[in-house]
Structures are given as structure tokens and as C-alpha cells.
Amino acid sequence: MIRVAAVGDIHVGADTAGRYRRHVTGLAGHADVLLVAGDLTRHGTVEEGRVAVEELKDAPVPVIAVLGNHDHHSDAQDEIAAMLRDAGIIVLEGDGAIVDCDGVRLGVAGGKGFGGGFPGRSAGEFGERVMKEFVRETRSFSERLRQALTEVNEAGADVTIALTHYSPIKETLAGEPLEIYPFLGSYLMAEAIDEAGADLAVHGHAHLGSEKGVTSAGTRVRNVALPVLGQAYAVYCLEPAATRA
């Protein structure tokens, strides 16, 4: 059994510095790993990135994060990611990692992801250059996600999780206005997750959405945006593949 703590959209800033820290230090004994599903900051500034590092560093469990759209707002995403990595936090950007959690090999693959919409209502790679670039961004990420999930599976992960900021399914967006679904996620990520195989998919981004959903092929999906959870983080308990009935 592995206990996965997960949260997204903590949106730290100078005005909230230190407030999330106590939750991170208190994870010992309650979880084996912490996943952070993007939007660590409000404006994506380097200063806010430093606050995020202070909140998440020296955690009693491994911390694996992806960035979100807010973390890209000031074009300092590379610097923020580097600061997080310097503090020992694993930051995924279309790649994967395997961490040992008390003897269980947890494979996590992910990245920010992007939008485009869901079957029957999705954007196509057609027309203006910016429109094609929009769709290609998601298509390219989804392909990297599929590869990264395949790699962690082939490397012998006991439990595999896909971690993104944008949503792979529309069910966990329930509560958001329908009109903005294409800006909240894309089915291309779900297709990649289902094709490669994962035990769980975790995302954030949709503050007005719903926590629980499932992909078309049966992969559980959880929207862990802090406003959705209404608590500091959620904890999901997963059995390693070898011990499942």
C-alpha cells in the first residue's frame, strides 16, 4: 500500500508565505509521497518561485511537481523549475521519474499539459497558425506523456501515476462553465494515459471542478485543485501491482 498525498493550485505568494509549509512538514506518517499538480504560484515570478521552494523544500517525503499556467505567466518557468530542483523537488516536464516509497517503486510521469477540449467538442489542427500551434502543443505533450508513462511502466514501477496541471477528462471539470472546457484540458492526454497504462491520473487547474472522474478506459482521475478539495491535500491509497487481487 502506498499513500499518495496530492494537491494543486496552492498559488503561493509573499502574502501567504509560510502558510502551506506546516502541511508539508506534517506529512510524515500520513503519506509516502507528495504530488503537486501545478500552479504553485500566482503570477509565476521568480520571487513567488522562491516562496514555493520554501514551502515545499526539506519535506519528510519525496515531492514531485509539475508547473501550471500561472507558473508560466512571467516567463520565468525555467528558473522556477530550476530552483525547485535545486531544493530536491522532482519537476516533471513531459518526462517521468521513479521514486522508492518505503519499498514500493512509484512511477510518475507528467508535465503541465495544455487544452484543446474533449471528444465531439475539441479543437482541430486546422486554419490559422496560432490555432494549429495551440493544438500541436497539446498533441506534442500528450505524445511525450505516453512515452514517459511507457518508460516508467517498462522500468518496473509497482504503481504508476500521471501528473498534469490541465485535465485529461471533462468529468472532473463539472462545475466549470461548459464554454471554457477547451481551455481546461484535452482528451489527448487521457488517450495517452489509457494507451500507456496508469493506476491514477492527478490534475489541478479547474478550481470550480469536481474531484473524481474516470477515463474512457477506466483510469481513475482526481482533480486535486486546492479549492476543489477544500483541504490542504487529498490522500489516495494504492496497492502495488504485484499485490493486487
Binding site: R3, H23, H30, L226, P227, Y233, C237, A245
Partner: peptide, 15 residues
């Protein structure tokens, strides 16, 4: 948003 920590009864077991 409340930032209280979940208690053990709120953990979700996925099987």
C-alpha cells in the same frame, strides 16, 4: 478555501 489537513478516515483507497 479551508486548508485543514485530512484525517485518516478521509483517505481514499483505490483498488
Amino acid at each position: 478555501v479551508s486548508s485543514r489537513e485530512p484525517d485518516e478516515g478521509e483517505q481514499e483507497r483505490l483498488s
